[in-house]
Simulated assay, not measured.
Amino acid sequence: MKKFFLIPFFVALFSFAGAASAQTVDANSPDGMIKTVTQQVIDAVRGDKSIQQGNISAVTKLVNEKILPYTDFQRTTQLAMGRNWRSASPEQQQQIVEQFKMLLIRTYSGALAQVKDQQIQYKPFRANPDDTDVVVRSVVMNNGSPVELDYRLYKTPQGWRVYDINVLGAWLIQAYQQQFNEQIQQHGIDGLIQFLTQRNQQLASGKAS
């Protein structure tokens, strides 16, 4: 079976430091929101040893408080599932969203321990006033090596929300589409839920390969 976990989603969220210092998040500014949320997350990581040690409860709390309010993870999951999303019941959709989110948290929580003094450079943000879907582009310097890191956001009545991330040219949604589709084709919607659930159980018990 092809490797299911392709993109270090939470490495993208946690393993760099931004330059923003404001504590108030302006969700009406795509690039400003990314810079501010990034700084708040990095400050939280550096100030909490349990997060640095990969404590799942502490990591989940940080994600729920600092990141999820500015993301649309249901949209991320829906796009990753493609047309299969419509075949799932509302209960199944919710289960998949929750298991997928926990999968990413558990898989990449160890990346938090790697937060050091990485530097990030934001590329000039270009968008028209009437745009409803934009990309904020950046480059992270990690031990002297540049890492491309971009965020795709869309406009909602509550402000801009992140729904996809690009690391080194690979977008998160695109990377998971094939894996989700293969699981559903072979085992159905319930099979995907079972796969994600079992994988989370393996990661929780430390038995994942």
Rank of each mutant, 00 (worst) to 15 (best):
Q40C: 04
R152F: 07
S138D: 04
R137A: 09
R106V: 04
N84D: 14
V115H: 03
L196S: 06
A12R: 09
K35F: 00
D48M: 02
V25A: 07
Y151M: 07
F100P: 10
I96M: 05
F195G: 03
N166A: 03
S145L: 15
N128R: 13
N28G: 15
D31I: 12
M1C: 12
A12L: 13
D164G: 04
D190P: 08
R199Y: 11
F73V: 02
F73K: 01
S205V: 07
A111C: 12
S138P: 10
A88H: 00
I7D: 04
F5V: 13
M1T: 12
A208R: 08
H187G: 09
R161F: 02
A127N: 03
Q194V: 09
M1H: 13
T132R: 11
D150Y: 07
V11H: 15
D72W: 06
M141K: 04
S205L: 08
P129V: 03
I42R: 15
Q202V: 05
E65R: 11
Q174T: 15
T132A: 10
M102D: 12
D26Y: 05
S57C: 07
V134L: 03
I120C: 12
G188H: 02
T71L: 11
A58C: 08
Q121C: 13
L112G: 14
G169M: 02
G18D: 00
G144K: 01
Q53T: 13
